[in-house]
């Protein structure tokens, strides 16, 4: 449903952030993008959401060129979770969740009881119903991320773009987030996420793409892409891939 064809982007028109990137995403598929700091993961995700304009190549959604779609049309297909989000005003978690209805409401419309019911359903799904009336500014980072996911789900998109969804979470919440991503993919959402943890790609047993020096260095199933050689190439450290209870984990090698 999402097809990315030979895209390139540059902020200043000279130095390319990335180029020659192509991939496609099927329904229910999870694509995990790995790469060192500053490799352009977030920039790529922002391009996928049309927040930045490509210098080359094109992206199509269900066969339709994305540059020809309005923001409203895009929002009906794509949900975006930013890396960090702060709000100036203490909207309640429910008020934040119901904002996801924006692409489905007219310019002069406010959310109805039905829209609030849908938002509450998603709070329930994510297990944060007790937070509904809590101010968004006074909950923890993990809870805030869940509130934003509730908003994105209320938006009812088909593709989720998650920018480092695990980066500000404690260990337990990271695993819960991964389980949630798995659950959402079985519900039919296609998901693109960026992460700093190769283990998370193993955990999701997803498709993995490694972005390094401005292009996809490798792409394919986690088991073939996440290798000791590849990890050394992108992170510059020796890594050993070990098995614990038949699942793979990455450990820094002893010198």
């Amino acid at each position: 449903m999402l097809k990315v064809d030979d895209v390139a982007f540059s902020y200043d028109g000279k130095k390319k952030v990335f180029e020659n990137i192509s991939f496609s995403l099927k329904q229910g598929e999870v694509l995990c993008i790995l790469g060192p700091n500053g490799s352009g993961k977030s920039t790529l995700l922002r391009c996928l959401n049309s927040l930045l304009t490509l210098n080359n190549g094109n992206i199509s959604l269900n066969g339709k060129d994305m540059t020809r779609m309005s923001r409203k049309e895009l929002a009906a297909q794509l949900g975006f979770l930013p890396q960090i989000h702060v709000s100036t005003f203490p909207f309640s978690v429910l008020e934040v969740a119901v904002m996801g209805r924006a692409p489905h409401l007219g310019l002069a419309e406010s959310p109805s009881e039905k829209d609030y019911a849908l938002a509450k359903e998603n709070l329930e799904l994510l297990g944060i119903s007790p937070l509904a009336d809590k101010p968004y500014t006074q909950i923890s980072g993990g809870e805030r991320q869940l509130a934003l996911i509730a908003m994105v789900l209320t938006q009812k998109p088909r593709i989720l773009l998650l920018d480092e969804p695990t980066s500000h979470l404690d260990f337990g919440n990271q695993i819960r987030m991964l389980e949630l991503i798995k659950k959402l993919s079985t519900k039919g959402f296609s998901i693109v996420l960026t992460t700093h943890f190769p283990d998370h790609a193993f955990h999701l047993s997803s498709t993995v793409a490694i972005i390094n020096k401005g292009t996809f260095m490798a792409a394919g199933p986690a088991d073939t892409v996440i290798t000791e050689e590849n990890l050394k190439r992108i992170y510059g450290i020796d890594v050993q891939i070990a098995y614990v209870n038949s699942s793979k984990i990455c450990v820094p090698a002893k010198k």
């Binding site: 409203k72 895009l74 929002a75 949900g79 709000s87 924006a102």
Partner: peptide, 18 residues
């Protein structure tokens, strides 16, 4: 009601179809 969404941030507002 849409001013709420403007108050959430520019990228967020655009992602929400504004």
């Amino acid at each position: 009601w849409r001013i709420n969404i403007l108050a959430m941030g520019e990228d967020e507002a655009r992602s929400l179809g504004i």
